[in-house]
Simulated assay, not measured.
Amino acid sequence: MIIEDVSFPAGRHCETTTLGALLRHEGLDVSEPMLFGLGEGLGFVYWDAKNMDFPFLGGRTKPATITRTATDRLGVALHVQETASPRKAWRNVTAALDAGRPVGLQLDSYHLEYFTTKVHFGGHFAALRGYDDTHAHLIDTAQQGGAVKTTLTSLERARGERGPMTARNLSYTVTGPATPPDPATAIRAAVRDNARTFLNPPIANLGHRGIDKAARQVTRWLDRSTAPSHDLPLAATLMERGGTGGSLFRVMYRDFLAECATILDDDDLHLGHRLYAGIAPLWTEVAHHITTAGETGDPVHLGRASAILTDLAERERHAMRVLAGGHSE
């Protein structure tokens, strides 16, 4: 059972690629930046815990929240199922596939055979478009190969893994609306709410406060790591190429705002786009300095990364105030 007309060419981020593929099958062709923005996906987290080998810098909201928020904004019905039973989990997806609907899955990418880098990450997403006697056929990001397959056994392990960011065999399908909502209303609400969340984080590790914290902590990273030549470049690679679309999702959000500005003639949107067009390259500079520090062992580069992060915290705070409708130049 394989559904042929399921695709999302050139997808960069796993969750938006998965949602985009499901929506295209329903006849809704929405760009990836638009899905990310309508899903209020932009964020920041500085994550460091005792059981972690090295800190993690994240640029988006928690797994599955983009899907839930974007479908709500688009007026799309989202049907989510979770279960602790692998047998029931498989029945859930085969029932949808047999009815002609592709299925979104949350997975631990470590178990997927087409992944060349074996790292546990429980917040990965892919669209299941079918199966045969031995393999599951999936749509993943362009970086992972687009139309790919993995054995049914490995898929079961990927769905059932327990740990940070995992879900209990989570699967979901979408049903398109009879009448799509007004795009201007959806855009205004998504931009405003994302900005307000970013500006008012509940803890100091998130939002603009998290960027400030990262600026303070990053200078200690050579001492924090037992293998800085590995850990620092890996952290930088995740910022630039770990499914973020570049610059820790700031490139994707810049492109979202650019698309919004073609739909709405709004001064705050235009200004917000210009501000994020200036912000995005600075995140690439941060990643470069972190990589160089790891490769050379020279702490000067972490000092430079810290200074840029301090600047970024203020730049993003200002940009989000503009997008929240509070301030403009």
Rank of each mutant, 00 (worst) to 15 (best):
R162H: 11
L105R: 08
R60L: 01
Q144I: 03
G130V: 02
G41E: 01
H120A: 04
P177F: 12
R159H: 12
Y172R: 11
R73C: 09
L42K: 08
L57T: 04
H135G: 03
W90Y: 11
G58F: 12
A142I: 04
A95F: 04
F121Y: 15
P177D: 10
G100R: 00
T150L: 02
F121E: 12
T61H: 10
N169H: 14
P102V: 02
G123L: 00
F115S: 07
L57P: 09
F125G: 01
L57Q: 05
H111N: 05
V93E: 04
T94A: 03
D140F: 08
A96K: 00
H135Q: 09
E161N: 15
H124Y: 13
P63Q: 01
A142V: 02
T67D: 07
G176N: 05
D133T: 07
T71P: 04
G75L: 00
D140G: 08
Q143G: 13
N169A: 07
G58C: 06
G130T: 03
E40I: 07
P180E: 00
L105C: 05
T71C: 10
A99W: 03
R73T: 11
I66W: 01
Y110R: 07
A127G: 00
T134V: 14
T116E: 13
S154R: 06
Q143I: 08
R60H: 07
P86T: 06
R162F: 08
A70E: 00
R73I: 10
G123E: 02
V103H: 00
V119S: 09
A64G: 09
D72L: 13
Y46H: 11
G145S: 06
P164Q: 00
P63D: 05
G122K: 02
H120G: 01
G176R: 10
A89K: 04
R60E: 05
K88W: 12
P177G: 08
L128P: 01
I139V: 15
R91M: 14
R91A: 15
A84P: 13
K118E: 03
L112R: 04
T61I: 13
A89R: 01
Y114L: 10
D108W: 05
R68M: 05
Q106W: 15
D48E: 07
T153Q: 11
P177S: 09
Q144F: 11
E161P: 12
A126T: 02
P63G: 07
K149D: 12
L97H: 07
S171A: 13
E161C: 14
A49P: 00
T61Y: 10
V103S: 02
T67R: 07
L42Q: 09
T61A: 13
